[in-house]
Amino acid sequence: MGLNDLLYLVTAVIGLAVTVLALICLVRNRPIDWPTFWAAAALELMAVVVVVTEIVRLASTDLPVSVGTVIGYLIASVILVPLAVFWAMIDRTRYGTGAIIVAAIALMVIMLRFHQVWEAAGA
């Protein structure tokens, strides 16, 4: 497994952790707590790391990868979590927490798609 795949995996695992923590808040009918907040912050940090490595990878590859697709996912992967956290803070109910779950799952799907896009290009 290459470095990039490892980064996708780590990001997805943190995404899963955020999902579980937020789900606990949701089930307990609470707004997001600090553990969820910091887990979401870690997820965003990993998303930024992935974005940087993807840009480097795109700039240095000869593979026929779908550049537009990757760029689209890059943009989505950095904006989703801050948007969701912002929203969870405005609506301090269990449903604001639900927005974080949506973003975390979407980010996990994006990591899977990164893997698939590069695999399709022959990486």
Partner: peptide, 8 residues
């Protein structure tokens, strides 16, 4: 409420 998840 739940509409927030839907909106997200």
């Amino acid at each position: 409420g739940p509409g927030r998840i839907l909106t997200a």
